[in-house]
Simulated assay, not measured.
Amino acid sequence: MTQDHGGGSSTADRPEPEAVRRHAGSTESSRASRGWWDRNADEYQDDHGAFLGDDRFVWCPEGLDEAKARLLGPATELRGMRVLEVGAGAAQCSRWLAAQGARPVALDLSRRQLQHALRIGDGRGGRSGFPLVEADARALPFAGGSFDSACSAFGALPFVADPVHVLREVRRVLRPGGRWVFSVTHPLRWALPDEPGPEGLTVLSSYFDRTPYVEEDARGRAVYVEHHRTMGDRVRDVVSAGFRLLDVVEPEWPDWNTQEWGGWSPLRGRLIPGTAIFVCERDETAGPA
């Protein structure tokens, strides 16, 4: 899981970037994401590594675990399956999949995040045990039909200007009927401040304003970009990319989870959804990818 909504460049020796709302295209968004995650991967893993674990498949800050949710299907059916993880970060989810007997491939835009995947693998007595691929989700370097299923826990989709293009790439590399499950920030959160306390419960902007959130450096260059899609947009994106939508999961905040993660908190989580998980399968009635 590589999401840290509205995170910004928090390294102490860097000037604080300016947050603005403006257009940001595909190339600019991709460049900003690669740079941000390369710069902030160390801090991200320090802050969230204990929660994510080394080989746990966590869908969201609420703590929904794939071992319980089984959104990719029963764990017993994962054995031998080829699974692509998009936006894998340090590949914790792929490591869990491998432990179930699956054959994962962990893909991420950030080299530094994948270096953390190697570090964790080394610390457990060996390398990752599965391929780590540095690539942009907009151009997956795999042949058509290479995977039985694909997943993404807050990876790639919140940060791209062209989500349908990414979805079509995922569909292309899936076999017919392959399952695709991804989690993103719940669209409702866009209208609220990214704060864990009471101030994060007041609507300050329009839910329907799709202008990207951009953090700029002193020269006006984007260093972090996040794109908003309404719930309806997400559904239409999935369908237009050639998937059948099977379910939308909005995890409730569990009593055991007392931590704050950016704008996620027990206070907010018990009142409003923080995450939306889309469970899809490749729709063969939609024609070729």
Rank of each mutant, 00 (worst) to 15 (best):
W253K: 02
Y44R: 09
R221Y: 13
V238H: 04
E252G: 14
V86A: 07
A289P: 06
V133G: 09
A32W: 02
A241N: 02
G89H: 01
T211W: 03
Q45S: 08
A286R: 11
E215I: 03
P17C: 10
G220M: 05
H186V: 03
A218T: 10
T27S: 15
A50R: 12
A50L: 13
V83R: 04
G287R: 11
R111S: 14
G7L: 11
V58C: 14
L204C: 13
D283A: 07
E252Q: 14
P141I: 02
S30M: 12
F130Y: 15
H23D: 15
E28N: 12
A67Q: 12
S205V: 11
S110W: 03
S26T: 14
D136W: 02
W180P: 01
V239L: 15
P266V: 00
G63R: 00
R189S: 05
D209S: 07
F57L: 10
R95Q: 13
K68P: 03
V164C: 07
A19P: 12
A106E: 13
E284W: 12
T211K: 10
V181W: 11
G220V: 06
A241P: 01
L157F: 10
R172M: 10
G7V: 10
P251M: 01
W256G: 01
D148H: 11
A32F: 06
G232F: 09
T76W: 03
D122L: 03
T211H: 06
T285A: 15
S110R: 01
P288S: 04
A153M: 00
A137T: 08
A88Q: 03
